[in-house]
Design a protein around this nucleic acid. Structure first.
Length: 193
DNA sequence: CGAATTTGACCGGCGC
DNA sequence: GCGCCGGTCAAATTCG
């Protein structure tokens, strides 16, 4: 209820099923880990293999736990961002070519804000994982040069499985391991395949 | 009716 | 010290 209408009622889990008119293909992907954040790696046409980059998320974030505050919702400005880089351990940015910006990766996202950046004529949408205990944030923005491209940035790692296990086992088109990289890092096979 | 979404305002950080 | 930018929350509204 915002963009256009419902492109496909089938859109439930994987973007690969989007539809024939939406050319979903990874053009560029950026992987930022805590400590390594350089937007310079962005190449206009890197076009590497774009097949498996789920190597990230191997740090010790899988455990999460620690200060999982938030539970309850009472927390507001009590304690949360004492250290800028404390909980932020995973930063992943993907550039996808799709008409829709809301790529369902199997998780449920709750939009919590929209803001337009100065460097882009397009607004930026902020999504949050609506899972109990999952504080993963998602940032979606349209490319400022190619409105056909969408830049999705994930922040954090899901500490729970997808609401509906996705079976990216038979990806005839391509296996966007990127989708499981968040839920990976421990069980699940992910990859390989 | 409930839940999710929307828009605006507020806050914090950084730069100059 | 002030201004700017980005990010988040809150309340209201709408959709299902």
């Amino acid at each position: 209820m915002n963009f256009n209408e419902n492109p496909n009622p089938n859109w439930t889990h994987f973007p690969a099923n989007i539809d024939p008119l939406a050319e979903f293909e990874l053009s560029d992907y950026l992987v930022f880990e805590d400590g390594v954040d350089q937007f310079n790696s962005l190449s206009p046409q890197s076009l590497m293999s774009s097949e498996n980059f789920a190597a990230i998320g191997g740090t010790g974030a899988a455990s999460s736990t620690e200060t999982s505050n938030m539970s309850g919702a009472t927390s507001r400005n009590t304690n949360m961002q004492k250290n800028k880089m404390d909980q932020v351990g995973h930063r992943v940015a993907f550039r996808t070519k799709s008409e829709l910006e809301v790529m369902d990766d199997g998780f449920k996202w709750r939009k919590y804000g929209k803001k337009s950046v100065k460097n882009s004529p397009n607004p930026r949408n902020y999504y949050k994982c609506s899972s109990g205990g999952c504080n993963v944030k998602k940032r979606v923005e349209r490319d400022r040069d190619d409105s056909s491209y969408v830049i999705t940035t994930y922040d954090g790692v899901h500490n729970h499985e997808s609401p509906s296990v996705v079976y990216y086992n038979q990806m005839p088109l391509m296996a966007p391991n990127a989708w499981n990289l968040q839920a990976s890092s421990h069980s699940h096979s992910s990859c390989s395949s």
